[in-house]
């Protein structure tokens, strides 16, 4: 049994190593005084200083965060509604159609989503910029929220609702005091995934942005024209450290629930 344990551990270690290799590469060179991502010269914190002084970069990072927070929040609300809606539908056919429509965006390549939203916004006349990016992010995050919340709803025993009704709970109370608390882990998971999708997105934002509004991923793409400055490496390292802290924090928060928040994937 010992040998098997070792092999499986080695496999996991290799996987994690490869997953994090490029990231460590980036972090390593963020300290390079040489200015490029090869030939490490001297250790320096200059790039970190630059990050903190670059106002434009700061604006872009804030843009990215705001879009992520707002789109995750709004899409979570819509997603919860959606999950409740799908849950309450009785006919199987309608249920399945709704589910398929829901999943279309999840499965669509970013390019199509970006292109189709671009067409949509152009026709409707929405100016490309903050609004178009926000709407797009909300749009593609809704499905994942539904997929995180729906299983929880399905797990919930209907007798809970019956019991609440018997005890005289109003419609509103049933929802706010019984259903929602039960599915809260799903809601959090959905919010978290929506946040991830938004932060990670490049292609859709790239298509629908305009008017000088930029998020971090789009900005990095346009910075590539002049050669990636190591300030981006420094910024990424900072973001990475921050997210590690958040992740570990989130993990210990979810441990506080009775059943550990299940981070589901797509169905």
């Amino acid at each position: 049994m010992n040998r098997k344990w070792k092999v499986s551990n080695i496999y996991l270690i290799i996987v994690f190593f490869i997953l994090y290799a490029p990231i460590f590469y980036l972090i390593y060179y963020s300290f390079n005084s040489g200015g490029k991502m090869h030939h490490f010269e001297n250790f320096t914190l200059d790039w970190y200083k630059e990050v903190l002084q670059n106002v434009r970069l700061l604006i872009i990072v804030l843009n990215t965060i705001v879009i992520a927070l707002l789109s995750a929040a709004i899409s979570t609300i819509i997603g919860v509604f959606g999950a409740l809606a799908i849950y309450s539908v009785k006919t199987r056919r309608v249920k399945n159609t709704l589910l398929s429509l829901n999943n279309v965006l999840l499965v669509s390549p970013d390019v199509i989503i970006g292109a189709s939203f671009l067409i949509l916004f152009t026709i409707v006349g929405i100016q490309l910029g903050f609004i178009s990016v926000l709407l797009s992010h909300i749009a593609f995050s809704v499905p994942i929220v539904v997929l995180m919340v729906l299983p929880k709803l399905q797990e919930m025993s209907p007798t809970l609702i019956d019991a609440a009704r018997d005890l005289g709970a109003s419609q509103w109370n049933v929802i706010t005091k019984v259903v929602i608390p039960y599915i809260t882990p799903g809601i959090f998971a959905g919010f978290f995934m929506a946040l991830t999708y938004s932060l990670d997105d490049f292609a859709v934002t790239f298509f629908v942005t305009g008017n000088g509004f930029s998020t971090l991923s789009v900005e990095i793409y346009s910075m590539a024209r002049q050669g990636i400055s190591l300030t981006i490496n420094a910024l990424s390292t900072l973001i990475f450290l921050l997210t590690i802290l958040l992740v570990i924090g989130y993990y210990f928060i979810t441990l506080r629930y009775n059943r550990p928040g299940r981070l589901g994937g797509r169905k």
Binding site: I59, L62, V66
Partner: peptide, 24 residues
Amino acid sequence: KIVQMFAIVFIASFAILFFIARLN
């Protein structure tokens, strides 16, 4: 908890937006 979380998110977002406008 949910309401609290959303409240925080929205307040934080608008604070950041305000900040961005000032920076711009």
